[in-house]
């Protein structure tokens, strides 16, 4: 089976990043009024996570940081060349690492799981895989 073309990888990355923007925007809007996203299975996990001291980073809501990250990843998927390949890989690796940290906080510190945060972590993992593949296979190759 041959590797997917860079065009296909970029198209899928664009789609996943756009979905991520939607998820992060929903979380940010839900938390903007002091509330929390609606946990589909109930249980109050989303509220507990939203109210925790870790929901802000230097005074900025973590979901807003997520929106910025997904927008930048979307831009790198739309741009050709090694700069965009490297940028996408670096951003998605940072996003993946930060998602791992946030998941650790949910599981072992806050002791509550927010499904929307899990969805975002999964999207970031997929974006990391796509960008790593693009970087490894297409860096130094013609666009």
């Amino acid at each position: 089976m041959s590797a997917p073309s860079e065009g296909t990888l970029r198209a899928v990355t664009t789609f996943v990043a756009a979905f991520g923007i939607g998820v992060a925007t929903y979380i940010a809007l839900a938390e903007s009024g002091g509330g929390a996203p609606a946990c589909l299975a109930g249980g109050g996990g989303c509220e507990t996570v939203a109210e925790s001291q870790y929901s802000d980073l230097a005074g900025i809501n973590v979901a807003v940081i997520g929106i910025v990250g997904y927008v930048l990843l979307l831009l790198t998927s739309l741009l050709p060349g090694d700069g965009a390949r490297m940028g996408g890989f670096a951003l998605s690796l940072a996003g993946f690492g930060f998602s791992l940290y946030l998941t650790y906080l949910e599981l072992f510190v806050i002791e509550a799981i927010c499904q929307w945060c899990v969805i975002s972590a999964i999207l970031m993992t997929i974006l990391f895989g796509l960008n790593a593949f693009r970087m490894l296979h297409y860096t130094g190759r013609p666009q």
């Binding site: 090694d82 940028g87 890989f89 670096a90 940072a94 690492g97 940290y101 970087m135 490894l136």
Partner: peptide, 21 residues
């Protein structure tokens, strides 16, 4: 080129995550 760019990307990502944590 891949090694050079990849190393820079990994370095930047690690710095970003460490700062965030």
């Amino acid at each position: 080129r891949l090694i050079k760019l990849g190393s820079a990307a990994v370095f930047l990502a690690i710095v970003a995550v460490v700062v965030a944590v």
